[in-house]
Amino acid sequence: MIRTELRKLILSPRTWVTIALLDALPTLVAILLALTDLGPRPGTGPAFLSAVLSDGSLFPLAAIAIVLPLFLPAAVAVIAGDAIAGEAQGGTLRYLLIRPVGRTRLLVAKLLAVLAFVLLAVLVIAVTAYIVGTLLLGDQPLATSVSGSALSSSQVAWRTALSLCYATFSMLGVAAIALFLSTLSDSPLAAAMGALAFLIASTLLLTLDAANVLQPYLPTRYWLSFVDLFRDPILWRNVVRGTALQGVYVVVFLGAAWANFATKDITS
């Protein structure tokens, strides 16, 4: 089942268009930086972006930091929102279910396929960013942690890998929300928009002091905490909380999706 979902993902032109678009923004940023040599001052702009002018091999991290707040979750909302609603709208959902594919299995396979999409997107972005970064940007190994101490290149490598995993995992919450909405509506657009609305609301509430009590539970709260992986020593607290929070979102919304979908009359 999951194999078939992955095949569908790979065969869909939209997957590759989305990834290409996601990839375009950080590449554009790299080119602009290389041409103008105007980096943001340290402490402003997306994380790591101030460092890449001197060390281009840090650009994968900067690229992830660029797409993580909006671009990547928007793509996830579109792909996950399409998961069930797209099949319903295309009329293929009924043919899937009479193969038969178990409804619970279908939901899990769809969520895993979205996760595979994010992983693929993040990897493509990181690899492109590494190539672009080392070709166009600085080549003095800077390799200091955010805390100021030196990091060996192997330390940078595995911390980068960990960051990519964390960024991928961070998208699970949005994916689960979009998947749930996708079982409610037969319109992929409505499901994606609903998930995006949730996301924008979460981002907005994070800037609002009055929403302090809610903030630890917002899905976007710990997204940029992968920066903590570059502290010395690594500051695990927020990374762990962020991972756990995504887990809670998956349990709640996948559960809701299951509750809605398992006994739903398929009239599409």
Binding site: M1, R3, T4, R7, K8, L11, S12, P13, G90, G91, T92, R94, Y95, L96, R99, P100, V101
Partner: peptide, 20 residues
């Protein structure tokens, strides 16, 4: 109904891959 961007053959192969 079928996956519109695929060939008939690929569509059937996906369909066959689903379920027991």
């Amino acid at each position: 109904s079928a996956y519109r961007h695929l060939s008939g053959h690929t569509h059937l192969s996906l369909l066959d891959g689903m379920g027991p």
